[in-house]
Design a protein around this nucleic acid. Structure first.
Length: 575
RNA sequence: GCGCCUGUAGCUCAGGGGAUAGAGCAGCUGCCUUCUAAGCAGCGGGCCGCAGGUUCGAUUCCUGCCAGGCGCACCA
């Protein structure tokens, strides 16, 4: 438990004790009503203390007393011995405000220094979660939308890992079904065209992308017209599997460039090959959730909250996408995951109820399956929407975005905003403003701290062997023991923010809201820059204060670096 | 028609049952002979879409409406 978690728990415990004592003293009669959950919050106004609770306001009704009176009673019975609480006040309509001994701030900084790269990380609890994201079709390049999916999924996975989950990052590759047939047909056309054949056109529902032209041109150069001599079916099979393989490699290459490293690339075709789809349908049938109608096999998903039943096997005997996806999710559960998370574009939101229904029908708790939906990405150029036409085959690829904007800025941009809001991604703007991008503001804070530490070392304040891969406290534990307290407002503001980091990570993980980490990093950077301008760190006239502040800026370095780490953004030591 | 998301400062967006609603950008005023000015300090700017309801208290929760986006396949 962190210093903050402990001190908050102590306050809550003492509040319950005070409540209990007040009841026994006959000063408070809740009339048998249950005790409310007492929560502490950091007040918006710092004049209202370090922490505050609205417990008295919640108790007022059942106690049939004025909230302020209830608060006074609780405060009278509140025992602050052995806690960091220095002063307790009743304020406003009945809030109880807690003012802490400034030594708590020193304790926080000391702790951050001790934990270093582990600050904000919870202990593993052994539960396993599978996070499925990107899951792009291997029939074309990754585009701007995939970028959001990738970063949202990646940062969620990181947050879960930091909060103790054993995480598997997984990509589902749709390398089977109709679209693959269309893909193969498109490749055939491009191959023939590359060999000079004319009068051919990409079939209905085919893939018009320039990337396939390039891919087949390359193949034609290497293989010549040799493939034309093969039987049609064999040629088609070759082209298809060749294309899928190359496109998947392409996806992996770009993701790698984007800092997205997935543990598992799961092939849909493998499910087909193992007869997993029909095996699952048979199982669902045995469970009584499948019926036949109009020549098709239906899942009675309405029994599990869906608004209509869904076809699993079509009249023509081919399984639907739902059948494949259910078999896939069954496979995930059978691999022993306690929890499944899928990251989908909001255009697929209508698909959620049928998946949940299917999962319930297969016998798993649908609450263990969650879908994170992100709203779509609008691509703009100078504020004007860019028409993304698949037909014309012209779309801005993720790789172009990474190349133009830079990996760090792109990642930060994608995850900066809540997944619930539509994201305008203006390439021209992102390029032009790259110097003003919030990510640089955060990275700059980190670089500035590193610079201060370097200067401290040059000034002989830190030992010659001082290394940035460890913290000041780790290398100079005696400093932490002798440290005094912070007195400047910009110092305490900063430390309080640093203290909130583990809680922020937990909240981001619990709510699957990765943008909170980006926002938090900006807040810390802001508080640091303010501190930097208000306080001088290295001051030969005041060695004790210098040491304390060196530990503070080092704690900033640790926290910013850890936050950027979760975001998958680099933390440069120089800029 | 039904479902999901969104509506908060000029723009882009945070926040969230409480005590005086925030940030960045844009505009204006200051701050570099001292650790990185990719920075800081300050000023101006708000019926938190509209109308009801619940509550001691609503911008936050509920209902209805309005506006924008996205869905509603034996496609994936």
């Amino acid at each position: 438990m962190t210093v903050v978690a402990e001190l908050k728990q102590a306050i809550v415990d003492r509040l319950y004790a005070a409540l209990c004592a007040a009841e026994q003293a006959g000063e408070l009669d809740l009339g048998g009503a249950e005790w409310p959950t007492i929560a502490l919050e950091v007040p918006r106004e710092k004049a209202h203390g370090d922490y505050a609770t609205n417990a008295a306001l919640l108790l007022a009704r059942s106690a049939r007393k004025a909230p302020r009176q209830v608060a006074e009673t609780l405060v009278r019975h509140f025992d602050r011995q052995g806690t960091f609480v220095e002063r307790v006040e009743v304020a406003g309509p009945g809030f109880i405000n807690f003012y802490l001994d400034p030594a708590w701030l020193t304790a926080v900084v000391r702790e951050i220094g001790r934990l270093g790269t582990g600050y904000g990380r919870m202990a593993p609890h052994g539960k396993r979660v599978n996070v499925e994201y990107v899951s792009a079709n291997p029939t074309g390049p990754l585009h701007v939308g995939h970028g959001r999916n990738a970063v949202v999924g990646d940062v969620i996975a990181n947050c879960l890992e930091w909060t103790g989950w054993e995480v598997t990052r997984e990509h589902y590759t749709n390398d089977a079904g109709n679209q693959v047939l269309n893909f193969g047909a498109s490749l055939e056309v491009r191959y023939r065209q590359a060999l000079g054949e004319e009068g051919l056109s990409i079939p209905e529902n085919g893939y018009h992308g320039e990337d396939l032209v390039e891919l087949m041109r390359e193949l034609a150069e290497r293989e010549g017209d040799r493939l034309l001599e093969l039987p049609a079916e064999e040629r088609r099979a070759y082209l298809t599997s060749y294309g899928l393989k190359r496109k998947l490699e392409e996806i992996q290459r770009v993701l790698d460039k984007f800092g997205v490293h997935l543990d598992v690339y799961f092939s849909e075709q493998a499910l087909h090959d193992a007869d997993a789809l029909m095996a699952n349908v048979r199982d669902l049938k045995a469970r009584g959730h499948v019926y036949e109608a109009e020549g098709a096999l239906w899942l009675r998903s309405t029994a599990f909250g869906d608004d209509k039943d869904r076809v699993l096997v079509r009249q023509n005997g081919l399984p639907t996408y739902v059948a494949a996806d259910l078999a896939y999710h069954r496979n995930k559960y059978e691999r022993g995951f306690d929890r499944l998370i899928d990251v989908w574009g909001a255009d697929h939101h209508g698909y959620v109820p049928r998946m949940k229904a299917g999962i319930a029908a297969m016998g798993w708790d649908p609450d263990t399956f969650q879908v994170v939906l992100y709203q779509l990405v609008n691509l703009l150029a100078n504020g004007v929407p860019v028409q993304m036409s698949k037909r014309a085959g012209r779309l801005v690829t993720l790789e172009e975005v990474i190349d133009e904007v830079g990996r760090d800025a792109a990642r930060f941009w994608y995850v900066m905003r809540s997944a619930d809001t539509t994201l305008d991604f203006d390439l021209e703007l992102a390029k032009k403003q790259s110097e003003e991008n919030p990510v640089y503001y955060v990275q700059y804070a980190h670089a500035r701290v590193a610079s201060i530490l370097r200067q401290a070392q040059e000034a002989g304040l830190l030992p010659a062997g001082f290394a940035l891969d460890k913290t000041v406290v780790q290398q100079l534990p005696a400093w932490a023991e002798e440290a005094g307290v912070f007195s400047e407002e910009s110092e305490s503001d900063l430390v309080k923010l640093l203290a909130a980091f583990p809680g922020e990570v937990q909240l981001a993980a619990d709510r699957l809201e990765p943008h909170r980490i980006a926002r938090y990093a900006q807040n810390v950077a802001g508080a640091f820059h303010s501190f930097y301008n208000a306080c001088r760190v290295i001051d030969r006239a005041e060695p004790e204060r210098t040491r304390l502040r060196l530990m503070l800026v080092d704690a900033v370095r640790v926290t910013v670096r850890n936050a950027l780490n979760i975001l998958g953004v680099s933390a440069p030591e120089r800029m």
